[in-house]
Design a protein around this nucleic acid. Structure first.
Length: 350
DNA sequence: AAAGCGTTCAACCGCTTGTCC
DNA sequence: TGGACAAGCGGTTGAACGCTT
């Protein structure tokens, strides 16, 4: 049994909207509002459209003050920052950008921003590898990070605006004086996932200096430690992951500042969604997908076919194989010690 | 000139969440 | 309390367009 259709599909028009349909819908809503019932609306105006379709058309196109295209550098930065913090919650991100719709932002991210940043990161890695005498992998696919463990990796992070507006409709700038503030922001952004955010926040060693900072400055200025819920991104910095018996991974972060404590898979699963988002989004973002893919796949996919992928979504799934990672030991062995991820240390924002 | 291919983005689909009874 | 329904949301699709060969 499938889901009952929201309207009579045989009697509704699909596809692009005509100017006439737009005019009808706009004029009706201008005069009467939506009436709180999108399903009934098309019948009222005599449109052969599904209510959902009307709603979408209004929200994404006809609504007043909608901006299309021409994203500014500042908007780019906000999108990136929020994507790293909260993942693909486009409606939340859109709420921070006046005049932008979630659909617009989603499309912009998928078609341009992602590639733009990836390209930027790739260039930087290549440049740095050249400078360090690191030989790019023969088969091209991986920009192997064979960096000295003392070196710090500098994430490619676009210049971040000093202030991240909380609401598009106010001029009030948020300030984060303490951990509680950032927690509140993420909880506010996260809504129903507040528990997960709490867990994630507990896993992030965010230390707040005195004074006021934007969240993005925090990202830049603080050392942020991520830990993979699945234990596959096996270590960050000097953190170590140890394995217990029967699929129970124990992530023990031994570095001084780390705050993520011993955690079992069961506990991790509940936070899995958001930690996946965090890592799937941010680490690929920082290090480039090829390296991660190659390492995680332990060479199984190390040659040309996979290495060239630019599909982050796909790659995210590779970063997080199922929790029952029977082959993990092999993967771990494939990963050279030098490839251990360094602390995500952000150059100061100024 | 046109076929092939890649990119963009509006629109759709279907799952989740919220609300009402 | 639970079922029905509408809205919200994110992922996916496909038409249109532009570029390359």
């Amino acid at each position: 049994m499938g889901r009952a259709p929201c309207c009579d599909k045989s009697n509704v028009k699909k596809g692009p909207w005509s100017p006439d349909e737009d005019a009808k819908l706009k004029s009706y809503i201008d005069q009467h509002g939506t009436g709180g019932n999108w399903i009934a609306l098309p019948q009222k105006i005599g449109l052969k459209r599904c209510g959902k379709s009307c709603r979408l058309r209004w929200l994404n196109y006809l609504r007043p003050n909608i901006k299309h295209g021409g994203f500014s550098e500042e908007e780019d930065n906000i999108i990136c920052s929020l994507y790293v913090c909260i993942g693909s919650r486009w409606s939340v991100i859109a709420a921070q950008l006046p005049g932008r719709t979630d659909n617009d932002i989603k499309n912009y991210w998928n078609t341009r921003l992602k590639k733009k940043l990836l390209g930027k990161r790739r260039k930087e890695l290549q440049a740095r590898n050249k400078g360090n005498g690191v030989v790019e992998h023969e088969n091209n696919s991986s920009l192997l990070l064979q960096e000295n463990s003392a070196q710090q990796l500098h994430p490619c992070w676009p210049q971040i605006p000093a202030v991240l507006p909380l609401s598009p409709y106010t001029n009030q700038s948020p300030s984060f004086n303490d951990q509680d503030s950032i927690r509140k922001l993420l909880i506010k952004l996260g809504g129903r996932f507040s528990d997960d955010y709490q867990r994630i926040l507990d896993g992030l060693n965010l230390q707040f200096p005195h004074g006021s900072l934007s969240s993005t400055q925090l990202l830049q200025e603080e050392q942020v430690h991520f830990v993979s819920s699945a234990g596959c991104m096996n270590s960050i910095g000097n953190n170590q992951v140890q394995f217990g018996q029967s699929n129970e991974y124990r992530a023990e972060l031994v570095q001084g500042q780390s705050s993520f404590t011993t955690t079992t898979v069961g506990e991790m699963v509940s936070a899995n969604d958001y930690s996946q988002r965090l890592l799937g989004g941010s680490l690929e973002f920082f290090y480039g997908e090829e390296m991660i893919t190659d390492k995680i796949m332990g060479g199984a996919c190390a040659s040309s076919s996979c290495g060239q992928s630019t599909d982050w979504g796909e790659t995210s799934s590779l970063i997080y194989p199922p929790l029952v990672a029977s082959n993990y030991e092999g993967v771990r062995q494939e990963m050279p010690r030098e490839c251990v991820f360094q602390e995500l240390s952000y150059p100061g924002a100024q």
